[in-house]
Design a binder for these strands. Structure first.
Lengths: 271, 271
DNA sequence: CGCGAGATTGACTCGGGTCAATAGTAGTGG
DNA sequence: CCACTACTATTGACCCGAGTCAATCTCGCG
């Protein structure tokens, strides 16, 4: 039933795991080209980059560790090499909102750029490894490595725009549609990383999903159950099988049925 | 009753209005220093910038004109010199979401950076004037004007982060709290521009506000009425007077009342 | 003056929040 | 190894807030 191993090592061989399978606090490093690849830039763009040049350290974090805290002074951007995280926005009253669930290739910490301190908090959902990109180093070394700076900014723009789109557009949808949309986008991201897009292991709790979508954990649970009852997915705790991706996609639309009669409609249409 | 004149010229003297008060389609230009000031960077940072250097053209738009369309190929960033606009995100089904209401000093169009075409649409709510910053020019001239490029990126980060925060945090609040929060942040922005923060003229419709906050226009209207009934604001169409800013702020919190009894509570607490 | 877009207000309905009870799962320590 | 515990998830019952539909009002503009 285990969908995928979330801690699966990336394809290259930079890992360092001790005999018990535990992650060690070793520091390894990545070149600008490694970063470019990880961030998903095209090969042509990356080939222009000199292989020699600045190196960026890696850092490992255990489950539930904080990468940085709200208000902490901003020093570095992070690129995920493996593992899963969440970034959280807190308001003064303490209730929180999950902005994103970064995974391999995603960028963290850019919300600190504008006022030199992090405006969010980032927490490891699984053991994970991040590449540390000190912002000052980025600005100074980029004199010679201009490509890097521009790559980073393009990546920032992409991250923010995507997060924006995701959160914003779903807000007008019903709970089931939001959850369906969430699963779909997660599946796409998994697929892009080479994981299965049919068998998904959710690294986050229902509460986290709720905080991300603007729903309560109960509603998320009910929505998953409803999608399961409709035969579109199968749910067993954090293991999700996507049985009918095309119906999942249909579910996103606000059910543009005539719906003038007294039919119950709603979630039973697919039952 | 007119709160402020939205078309008020900025304090410097770069405007060009014909004898009838109409805006002319003249092109004027701004230096890097002008841009820096407009974007709100500190004087010390700006003083380092050579006054000579690249110049950026201005462009005027009439009410309801589109600055750029969704899908259009990305060429320029825009900085608002005066006037009010809205940026809109549309999904495939056509329903829209208002992401932001840019005004003087705000930046537009950065969502096009990541895939070279605009992912949003930007529409003038009033006549307005924008400074055009061609992205290619930014990248190439920035060899010598590195400050400019970095300023722009900091500004982008700030815009996106703020928009993010605004939309995200309000989603857990009740409608009245959302509207109160919206008014408060608008008042702050007005104040920062030197306008009155007590007498506000909303440049957008109730529908726009609703699309921004994830509410319907009726709910926005009701929320405004409720705030008015509580004596916190006075509403006359698009003219809003903020009578008790501190209560407006209190309203933001989810009303942490004991509320165990059968008191009606809700919007009448302040009546 | 009359038209139409925008705004307000009311009545009704229902989706999702809240509270609560239960069950499944993982981790801990004797 | 198993029992205890704490966390996570599921499901039900209830109720309130906001969406929907609709009528009316106001204002600006031709």
């Amino acid at each position: 039933m285990h969908a995928i191993k979330l801690e699966d090592a990336p394809s290259d061989s930079l890992n360092n795991v001790d005999p018990l399978g535990r992650l060690q606090q070793v520091k390894l490093s990545s070149s600008v080209r490694d970063l470019g690849k990880l961030l998903g830039f095209s090969h042509s763009k990356i080939r222009e980059i000199n292989e020699l040049g600045p190196q960026f350290h890696h850092r490992r974090f255990k489950t539930d560790e904080r990468i940085y805290r709200l208000g902490q002074s901003f020093e570095s951007l992070y690129v995920v090499r493996f593992g899963f995280l969440k970034t959280v926005l807190r308001n003064s009253e303490g209730d929180e909102r999950v902005l994103s669930f970064p995974m391999k290739g995603n960028l963290l910490g850019f919300d600190g750029i504008c006022d030199n301190r992090y405006g969010t908090e980032s927490i490891a959902l699984t053991d994970c490894e991040l590449i540390v990109v000190p912002f000052k180093k980025l600005l100074t070394t980029a004199q010679s490595y201009r490509e890097l700076e521009q790559m980073m900014y393009v990546a920032i723009s992409r991250e923010l725009t995507e997060a924006h789109t995701g959160i914003s557009l779903s807000s007008s949808l019903k709970s089931e549609a939001r959850v369906a949309h969430f699963l779909e986008s997660l599946a796409k991201r998994y697929a892009a990383l080479g994981y299965s897009s049919k068998e998904i292991l959710l690294p986050m709790t229902r509460r986290d999903i709720g905080c991300h979508l603007g729903l309560t954990l109960e509603t998320v649970s009910r929505a998953l159950s409803a999608l399961a009852a409709a035969g579109i997915i199968a749910v067993h705790r954090k293991n999700i099988q996507i049985l009918k991706p095309e119906l999942l996609h249909l579910f996103k639309t606000p059910l543009a049925l005539p719906q003038r009669n007294n039919q119950p409609a709603g979630s039973l249409v697919f039952a």
